[in-house]
Design a protein around this nucleic acid. Structure first.
Lengths: 118, 118
DNA sequence: GCCACTTGGTAACTTTTCGTTACCTTTGCG
DNA sequence: CGCAAAGGTAACGAAAAGTTACCAAGTGGC
């Protein structure tokens, strides 16, 4: 166990991958960042990310909240209102993600479109 | 199908995610980039990424090759020699990944270690 | 009053992906 | 001969993701 910790400490890319290397985390962060107000309700996110199932969105948000990248605010109303936003740490990550997006834009032509769509 | 294409075209982050949003791709790119010569053989990669199974490494490399991020050179010797290296496009991606790593280093203390190790 | 609809989920079940183990080929070493 | 090395692939079980159904507590229409 101690060597696993050491390996992770020594290799920051593994921290990145383990925190949001899954299929939906990056997209959640990106979508929250794109929002005008910086705050989005659960179903609002769901509509923006229509190809992500409700279960996976819920799970991904929970994970991001635990990693302190996303803030979750519950308003005890009926129907319930739950608002999600980026934490300061989450915001600090966005420039790196933006760099990735810029790369994707620039090199889009270098790959075949059908490979992207599975 | 046409709308799926349009959605992907309109949202470059999805291109990034669909190309190397899986568990091992980023780590392969990173490991290749860290190598002194820039060239690594299959089992050399495997030793560096000991927690990735042979099958997944093989699959990941095949995928990266199809996306033109990794070059695969086969030497018809016995025992076979297969060398992997980053393509120019693969190399062009590294600054963005390095930015992610720098972010991880800086914000490491903001998350709890046990969350990283699953 | 009654039905339909909304929100933010969770439980159960199915499908897809991942990981593990075994195996293949050809050659060199002892 | 018998084993090891290289770079894989095939088959199978486990884990993760996707799908569908359902929940509570209202609100609006009729």
């Amino acid at each position: 166990m101690a060597d696993i910790k050491a390996a992770y400490l020594a290799c920051p890319i593994r921290q990145v991958i383990s925190r949001f290397g899954d299929k939906w985390s990056l997209l959640v962060l990106y979508t929250l960042n794109e929002s005008d107000t910086g705050v989005m309700r659960f179903n609002e996110l769901r509509r923006q990310m229509s190809d992500c199932s409700q279960k996976m969105l819920s799970q991904t948000l929970k994970n991001l909240e635990q990693n302190n990248l996303v803030h979750r605010e519950v308003y005890p109303e009926v129907p319930p209102r739950v608002e999600y936003s980026l934490t300061p740490i989450g915001k600090s990550l966005m420039p790196s993600i933006t760099a990735l997006i810029a790369w994707a834009k620039e090199h889009f032509d270098d790959v075949v479109i059908h490979q992207i769509i599975i």
